[in-house]
Design a protein around this nucleic acid. Sequence first.
DNA 1: TAATGGTAGGGGAGGAAAGCTTTCCCATAT
DNA 2: TAGTGATATGGGAAAGCATTCCTCCCCTAC
Length: 1066
Amino acid sequence: MTDESTALKRPASVDNVSKEKKKSTFVEKLEFEATQTQTIDVGTIADQAWDRPPLSSGWDRKPIIFQQIDAQAASYDSNIVRMFGVTEEGHSVMCDVVNFQHYFYVPAPANFSEEDIRPMIDSIPDENERKDFISRIAAIEILPKQSIWQYNGGNKSAFLKIVGRTPKDISYLRTQIENEQNAMHTQYGLSTMTYDNISYELRCTIDCGIVGMSWITLPANKYEVVEDVDKQSTCQMEVRIDYRELIAHKVEGEWIKSAPLRIMSFDIECSGRKGIFPEPQIDPVITIACVVQVQGSSRPFVRNVFTLNTCDAIVGSEVFEHETENELLMHWADFVRKVDPDVMIGYNTTNFDFPYLIDRAEALGENSFPYFSRLKNVRQVLKDAKFSSKAYGNSESRVVNIEGRLQIDLLQYIRREYKLRSYTLNNVSARFLGEQKEDVQHSMITELQAKGPETRRRLAVYCLKDAYLPLRLLDKLMAFVNMTEMARVTGVPMSFLLSRGQQIKVVSQLFRKCLEIDMVIPNLKQNGGSDEKYEGATVIEPIRGYYEDPIATLDFSSLYPSIMMAHNLCYTTLIIEGPTLSASGMTIDGYIKKRGLNLTPQDYVKTPNGDYFVKSDVQHGILPIILKELLSARKKAKDDLKKEKDPFKRAILDGRQLALKISANSVYGFTGATVGKLPCLAISSSVTGYGRDMIEATKNFVEKHYSKANGYEHDSVVIYGDTDSVMVKFGTKSLEESMRLGEEAADKVSDIFINPIKLEFEKVYYPYLLINKKRYAGLLWTNSNKYDKMDTKGIETVRRDNCQLVQYVVETVLQRILIDRDPEKATEFVKQTIVDLLQNRVDLSLLVISKQLSRTDYAGKQAHSELAARMQKRDPGSAPVLGDRVPYVIVNYSSDKNYDKSEDPTFVLENDLTIDTNYYLENQLKNPLQRIFEPILGAAKTNSLLSTAQIRTRTVTTGDKFSKFAVKTQQCKGCRRPLRKPFDTGAVCENCAAEAGRLYAAELTDLYDMETKFGELWSECQSCQNSVEHDVICAAQDCPIFFMRRKVQKDLDKKYNELKKFDLSW
DNA sequence: TAATGGTAGGGGAGGAAAGCTTTCCCATAT
DNA sequence: TAGTGATATGGGAAAGCATTCCTCCCCTAC
Ligand SMILES: Nc1ccn([C@H]2C[C@H](O)[C@@H](COP(=O)(O)OP(=O)(O)OP(=O)(O)O)O2)c(=O)n1
Ligand code: SF4
């Protein structure tokens, strides 16, 4: 779509170039190719350096080899599967996979043959219904297949494969057959149980062996080229191929490589009214910035900004100015089509940028705007989507279809992969990129936009920076690489990784494996999901206390997956569930005979849970195979981790192996998911049953073997253990000795169990503070020379539902106790902190608590949910929504309920509300500290440290108790006596008037200190915003600097006023 | 055309329930 | 405006309060 209407009013003016001499450091960072700043062709943005490489002639007679980025059924109503991808040279490809026919299976009735098919269908009484049925059928075949329940009642081997054309046909046919009233069922005994209904999005890719982000070869002469005039897409190559002709490459050898994908990151700015979040019906889009980079390269090759109204030039970036918003939007859409990105990324693009652009264009009546996908005639529309899972929480989003372009919203990725207190771009970039990001409020954006080309330039630079950050995050977090790996290992398209859960990954793998061995999966009727729970793992009752001897930790590696592999637990190997067998009153022998199964007692095992499974030499389970693959991918990741030295990269690699571990554990979880596609509690509860037996056996073995009775110096004690681990006190004081015993014990225990079950000696805690189940801390040693780090589990240092002050204090206290071994120093620190807190000297940012808003219908009132509701009333646009974390502080208020006292930190700053320091002492600090100190100092000392009375005396003696009243009743600056209004006009009372000179000087010093402090903060912000010539306008909620700057500013104002009073009295 | 891995567990907060004390009202004795 | 003895005592209901227990919720360890 060429677009003459997006004429640029004016190329970036030449005058402005001179200003570039004094550009900020950020802009210099942005600068990469001076040639790119030349003036731009008016009217069109064709012929740019960013065009894809031209096709060589005769390409259509050679094989097409490309990396596929998205392969999904084109629609519910068609049998075309549409693939988009990129070749190694960077050519864009769209390939329609044709002739694929969707299908499902039904067990054939007894003694059924080809000849019976027609009469059976003819038995449908209603003529229209029959015709409808027949018209949707493409074919029916009788095929030998096994149900995955082969031993558990489903030992049919002949299946009818019902072939339709489109997913819609299949859905119709299935509904007919599953209906118990249907004549084929009542007259011919056709089962109403259907098999192999996988979501149509995956069906074809599974059958073709295509996994997410894999390479495809379209052999020469096997594909058909779509002529330019008929092209539906904007891709360079548009072809069609029969699904049987394409070659899907396994991800191995050379096919591990990646195509040069184009990633475009963008960000938009909207003007807003004061205190109101921008609304697309009213508030215009004023700036859009884009940065485009090839995956894997280190430098963007396009940077540009689309502005409303004029804007001064920016070195290293193109500036496109527009007179109207319509032009701006249309020009941007045109740019997207021209630069043709394979991947579009940003921060919160799913819930903000894309919906805003589309809604805004609609509000402006710009109907031709929402066409920036790779399909020319497909409109981009918004659809509401909900996601709900225990692990990822509940959330709502508005998704937009952009055919052929992957969307990666970094916010969503980071939310899933990293547990953070706050997910604002400011906080995320501070954490991962080590730099604060200034945050400009919407009313300020409006001001910048209104003033002139220079401030608009500032806005544009700000927007550019925000557009570039997601790219840097993508790179630094290796998000694209990790997602590619996950898509390839689990087989799902990359887009599923952010929009779907764990189930779909398991389903994808399960169906692939079943297809290979001719097995079919029943479609269980969704019976509303019974909320049946089963018994999980054992947590050994801890022997609580503070241990100054080394505690060795033994841990089964990948416990549940290895149990499933060792005992061959799978759908395909289940003979019968324990409860069912006992209900029937039969013995297992009797049952096997009755079923006519050819199994001897050596062929199967009974799990601790009482269920029976066949051994792997009879039938090797599918789940164990899947697990093996997942674990080997994990092992690779763990090996990379071992090699890496850089701490940040290690953290990233750790995340990668963790994601793979969770996927493996989710295979177990999937069998226990009663609301899932294929629950099988026999498997999941057998797994946990084995696990319980194993931890018990391990504990017993260790305690029995390492005992005086057995010739050792001490009796060992297992002081704690959770699911797959035991913490052993061997009794020795020597670190080396405990490590040696740990190694040895791990080997001995491993020998008891079947492969691949393995107990590993992991680490020694020394010293070790065991507070409670799932709560402990200790110094972690993996070698006896130097401890690795302090490790804390479950306690406040790793939790996000308290304030950072608590985290900081607890962390410091633990360090002083565990590392310095100096509890005295720890108590001193606590005392000082409490004094600081009660005297309001603790920075507000340390007092912010945040909790996730995880539902819409809370049963009771909660601090965070009530605050969210109040904020909703103040400004609906900026209030937290489902799935967001709500930051709040507890302030003094007339109610004693926390849900009344919670308040938005920014609101607190703006309205000068006072913090309820007592809450932070009593409800935040006290209990966690008590739990730590008590095992070490004893109850008496701890109580005296933390008792209210003691704290009060300590605090009062330090004075300054009146500071919080200072605002209300004016006091003499000298003696603090309340000023008597008519007599004492100035800052000091009559009595102190003589001393006024000295006091004034003291005040001046104070003021000077504050000004210095403010100056420091100010210049910190200026360096953050990379400009010393501009005022600081940032209001970043997560930045501690912001809070300090505001507080000092307020204090300064107060001081000025006080000093003014001196003037009066003199 | 729905889709959502599992269980165990600590700990904070709110709110109902149960228990205790105080207050109030009434009947009765003097 | 109509009706008025005064006082002490005990019992029981109602009200107020503190405590306990349970449930919800968050987030974490496996
Ligand atoms: N997200 C998780 C984490 C754990 N588990 C279960 C299955 C695990 O096998 C078992 C033990 O958990 P670990 O955290 O010790 O993890 P693994 O033993 O699987 O891996 P490894 O110990 O090798 O890191 O708990 C689970 O179901 N889901
Ligand atoms: S407050 Fe200052 S340091 Fe913090 S993000 Fe804003 S500009 Fe940067």
